[in-house]
Computed example of a mutant assay.
Amino acid sequence: MKHIEKISLIGLGAMGVFFAPRLYETYGENFRVIANGERKERLENKGVTVNGINYKFPIITPDVMGDEADLIIIGVKGYSLEQAIEDIRNQVGKNTLILSLLNGVDSEERLIKEFGNEHVLYSFMRMSVVMKDGKADFDPYWGKIHFGEKENHEYTDRVLAVKEVFDKADIPYSIEKDMLKGIWFKYMCNIGENMTCALLGIPFGAFRTDDNANWIRINAMREVAAIAGKKGIDLGEKEIEAQNKTVVTIPEKNKPSTLQDLEAGKKTEIDMFAGNVVKMGKELNVPTPINEMFYHGIRVLENK
């Protein structure tokens, strides 16, 4: 079985900090963060603070050659994927594996097109981390990474190698039998929760008590489920009901990424979220009125 010794992470935001402290504590200098320019300077000088501990992780710049990683974890925003692809290029060697933590449903295909199927595993995150001004406080065991081949009835050597990493670093994970369904389920939940919270300016706790917020959330999810069905992916009321039970367990004050971005005056991932739902709906003749509202409403909030 392949053993992973050298790990690189690009993107040290809410998703990246879920991994970085534990990977650094386990792999030491063999864990590196890819960064350059102003971001490199900021991480070297100020670091990031996770659960009260300030970390200054080892940095490797994108131009370094001959120091390929065994595993690359991509935790950037969706609109930064193209730049991330260029920034990891010198880190990809003959046996490098790549995990993309991005929201959305197409990052694996884009990475496969660029680097080849032999380098890419499928993955998605189910977690809620609020990060502000380089600081994050969260329960490191609330949430997990889901990963694997497209189908995982038996574990391949690639999957076992990554499993070994997460076991060593005490990072919660799940290996799904059907990764495409898992990715689309996560996307459906993100559309319902992320977009509703962003448009209305509410935290996750609103879904515990507000029937109106839940009406918007659930019907937005149904639009995604209808699109998934057209693509042969089995999502529907059973999965929506399962998420109804999960969403009320998310810490009440936590806010999803798009609302965090709006409040910080940052660019959002609206194109990848509601924008892509509307686009796919038009291609497949599936009505998406709630996602059209999300798209245009959140664009107004960005402009505001």
Rank of each mutant, 00 (worst) to 15 (best):
129 V>T: 08
77 K>F: 00
229 G>K: 11
224 V>T: 08
176 E>C: 08
269 E>D: 09
191 I>M: 08
4 I>D: 02
40 K>H: 09
90 N>V: 08
243 Q>D: 15
70 D>P: 00
62 P>F: 00
206 A>P: 09
153 H>N: 15
172 P>K: 13
118 E>H: 13
277 V>L: 07
111 L>M: 04
245 K>T: 10
118 E>R: 14
92 V>D: 02
124 F>N: 06
244 N>L: 12
133 D>K: 08
38 E>T: 15
204 F>N: 09
100 S>E: 00
25 E>A: 14
147 F>V: 04
79 Y>R: 06
73 I>H: 04
254 N>D: 11
201 G>T: 09
293 M>C: 12
88 I>P: 00
139 D>T: 04
250 I>G: 06
95 N>S: 15
212 N>Y: 14
233 I>M: 10
183 I>R: 09
236 G>N: 06
18 F>Q: 03
228 A>H: 01
301 L>N: 12
247 V>F: 09
236 G>I: 01
274 A>F: 09
40 K>M: 04
70 D>C: 01
172 P>I: 05
201 G>D: 08
91 Q>G: 11
298 I>N: 00
105 V>C: 03
29 E>H: 05
285 N>C: 10
62 P>E: 00
170 D>S: 14
180 L>G: 07
7 I>A: 03
70 D>Y: 00
92 V>N: 00
